[in-house]
């Protein structure tokens, strides 16, 4: 067993893990943060996307021990006080989900995109979703939700 210490959604966490434990399993099974989903477990679908030190990663393809000292944000961390993040609100508003299985990964991916490119074109949004698979929506409303959230976020006063 190994000990790993990291920050998850702003909270310091220390856990005992087998070195084989995937980051997603630490989050879901040990920390009970089940908002992050496992769709494929083969690095294809993006349902497991979380942010590690501000970058989107597939948490099924990273060992928990590799997150030592890292800052991890999951979908739960987007709405700490129960108020939806603008990207979450836009997904609801634009009907950007049906079964919802892909949604946490889609939203974490969208948040990372908008942090880097606050004004993406539709083509950039679609390209950025290359690693996220949705079996329900046909992507149309997901793209609409992200473009609408982008507008919403640009209108917000800058957080310092």
């Amino acid at each position: 067993m190994a000990t790993v210490s990291l920050e998850v959604n702003g909270r310091a966490v220390t856990a005992e893990v087998d070195p084989r434990t995937l980051l997603v399993d630490l989050l879901r099974k040990q920390l009970r943060l089940t908002g992050t989903h496992v769709g494929c477990d083969t690095s294809q679908c993006g349902a497991c996307v979380v942010h590690v030190d501000g970058r989107s990663v597939k948490s099924c393809t990273m060992l928990a021990v590799q997150a030592e000292g890292a800052r991890v944000t999951t979908i739960e961390g987007l709405a700490p006080d129960g108020r939806l993040h603008p990207v979450q609100a836009a997904f609801r508003e634009c009907h950007g989900l049906q079964c919802g299985y892909c949604t946490p990964g889609m939203i974490m991916t969208a948040v990372a995109l908008l942090q880097e490119h606050p004004e993406p074109t539709e083509a950039q949004v679609r390209e950025h979703l290359e690693g996220n698979i949705c079996r329900c929506t046909g992507y149309q409303n997901i793209v609409r939700a992200i473009l609408s959230a982008a507008q919403e976020l640009r209108a917000l006063p800058k957080a310092s």
Binding site: S43, G46, V49, R55, S56, T61, H128, E130, G131, N132
Partner: peptide
Amino acid sequence: IGDPHVRNR
């Protein structure tokens, strides 16, 4: 290469 998450790692 691949997708944004693959490129991040």
